[in-house]
Nucleic acid binder design. Sequence first.
DNA 1: AATGAATGAGGGTTCATTCAT
DNA 2: AATGAATGAACCCTCATTCAT
Lengths: 203, 203, 203, 203
Amino acid sequence: MPQRQPQHSVGQESIFQAALTCFYRHGYDGTSVRDIAKASGTTPAAMYHYYASKQDLLMDIIGRFMEQSIEVTRVAIDEAKDEPPAQLFAAARSHVLWNASDVVSSFVVNSEIRSLEPDNRHHNIAQRDKLQRMFDAVVARGVEEGVFMTPWPREASRAVVTMCTAVATWYKSGGELSPEEIADRYGAMALSLVGSTLGVASS
Amino acid sequence: MPQRQPQHSVGQESIFQAALTCFYRHGYDGTSVRDIAKASGTTPAAMYHYYASKQDLLMDIIGRFMEQSIEVTRVAIDEAKDEPPAQLFAAARSHVLWNASDVVSSFVVNSEIRSLEPDNRHHNIAQRDKLQRMFDAVVARGVEEGVFMTPWPREASRAVVTMCTAVATWYKSGGELSPEEIADRYGAMALSLVGSTLGVASS
Amino acid sequence: MPQRQPQHSVGQESIFQAALTCFYRHGYDGTSVRDIAKASGTTPAAMYHYYASKQDLLMDIIGRFMEQSIEVTRVAIDEAKDEPPAQLFAAARSHVLWNASDVVSSFVVNSEIRSLEPDNRHHNIAQRDKLQRMFDAVVARGVEEGVFMTPWPREASRAVVTMCTAVATWYKSGGELSPEEIADRYGAMALSLVGSTLGVASS
Amino acid sequence: MPQRQPQHSVGQESIFQAALTCFYRHGYDGTSVRDIAKASGTTPAAMYHYYASKQDLLMDIIGRFMEQSIEVTRVAIDEAKDEPPAQLFAAARSHVLWNASDVVSSFVVNSEIRSLEPDNRHHNIAQRDKLQRMFDAVVARGVEEGVFMTPWPREASRAVVTMCTAVATWYKSGGELSPEEIADRYGAMALSLVGSTLGVASS
DNA sequence: AATGAATGAGGGTTCATTCAT
DNA sequence: AATGAATGAACCCTCATTCAT
């Protein structure tokens, strides 16, 4: 699991975090620049020192998270045994873990796409597609090699990503199951979904 | 599939529809009462003739859709053969169909829960739970009867509802697949997810 | 004490009374036509059946009360013994009684002059002057005849009317003193104010 | 006579003054925030930089004036010769002077109590009572010492305050009488009202 | 790096009034 | 005589943003 490194100054970081929390609780349009300033203990004008606009802040939040989502998935697939079932299991598992590790960001990223202005939205959609295609590729290869029996690889692949991402909408830390346990189960369910001929031993 | 009957006066109905479209495109907080008025060809004041507030309008949209979601699922389960696989298939299938039949409402309902004020939100959560429990019951019975092999019935049940609901986030009418085809596939995937020992012939 | 006769239809009367209460509690500008309608159990449109506007309603309330104020004072002076002390005592006494008999109207009349539109206000000011001049005349005659010793008849006369009118701002029915008792005391105080050489036996 | 010192920034002061004028002319409910902005040469938003709300502005106006009214009266009584007639004369005199020195504030303060929200109103009533009790105490002592003959000290005391305060409702600067002359006359009338056995030489 | 002041535009909501029924 | 629907204007207030300091 990669570290979430600041890259920001402490002033910027506190604003970034405050915005994240606000957007999570009240949405982008439901959050005012004043709300962010109050939550970060600064003034509205301070935000404009680091970001050109409120929209720019949202882009930073979303873009950063998506970049890392892609990276995390790529690493998971690369490090898995070079066979579709192991790769799909690893990809689904790491995607769940990643989203569960930062439910707040995940939720904001997945619910505020609409609040992006056109150009920013296009960029985001491209990132999303890139992530989806990584899963698609694994599933497609599994079908080619005859280890995944699903007749609808595209739908199955989409369903896998959807259900893993959605974990962030209901997961609460401190719940009955640890993120790792949930991740294992979702890995297994992903294999079910594509009609894998064989399971994968969980850690 | 039940008809969406107005029950509203024409004035109210046009406002209802306009709000739905606006909320879908720009979100609750991103939509002004003036936007709704413009979209419905009336004035801001007209909305207040039918609804006590913008929030009240949102509640009407969400409450109505959720009520019907529950009803549709209940009918699907009731009318299916009295066996868990057939019931789960029918429930998933009808849930997909229902959400695909009104992507706009579905999306708004599933993305604007946060915009509900506390009391309204509690009511909505109760409705959501009610729907989830209908799926839970079918899956639980299947596990008891030994026809569903999943070791995690609760997670699987949640994943089924999640992925079916999410169809509304990407389905576009006029696409490659008809709603019925998609619904069939999701019914089958639901059975995969719970480890059903046998499939079900689609209609 | 003259009777307050309706002259209105019952529909109009209930609106008149409702408006009076509303204006008393929240002021003219603080009262909406809807408030009046609600308080009278009708609809906003009903008011327009009897009055041309909200302003017109206010004029009815104020004009009617002022007319009667003048009439009451005239009768009191006419019926008193033809001597300044008796007349001033009677005028002050009846003015207190009149205002205490309908504190609500009195308060509205004396606090909403400003809410009158120019033409209406001019008419109201004329009525007010007419009332004041009745007291002025009595005081002036008393001074001429040497029974009132005040060196400032105008100020004293104004102070008398002012303090009697103001009774409505604090009098609460059911209080320690009856309106008659208060009226007697104010009659006596009025004589003090003008430096009357002799008191007047109260009834 | 204490100076009315700004204590405000110039921005706030100009808004304060503009509001005062508007409230005086059209009442609290009859004045819009835009009216105040226009009158002060700023924008509606500027007011919210200094005050939390329009109501808050009203409270500032009323609270500040009442505080000073009390202070002015206290000083007048303290600095007068330590005998009830001198004290009542001084108190009435200074109360008239104070109200005449700022007719606008006085009028607003005495006519917009109703526009205060409950909590604010309670605070204001307490201030009013405090002022009234200062007069009550002087009159009561005069009666005890046998120098005031009135049989109704409470009513007389109230009438004194009432008539002095009301000067602001009719006094126009530049009129026939100077504020000092009017004040002297009202001081004398106050003594008449309580049946003082001896007058007080005016300045 | 940080902020208090300021603003034009727009937020949700209520207004007095009209009019067809 | 009475009302539900409708509307344009205005309500109080908050918005994202700028700028001098």
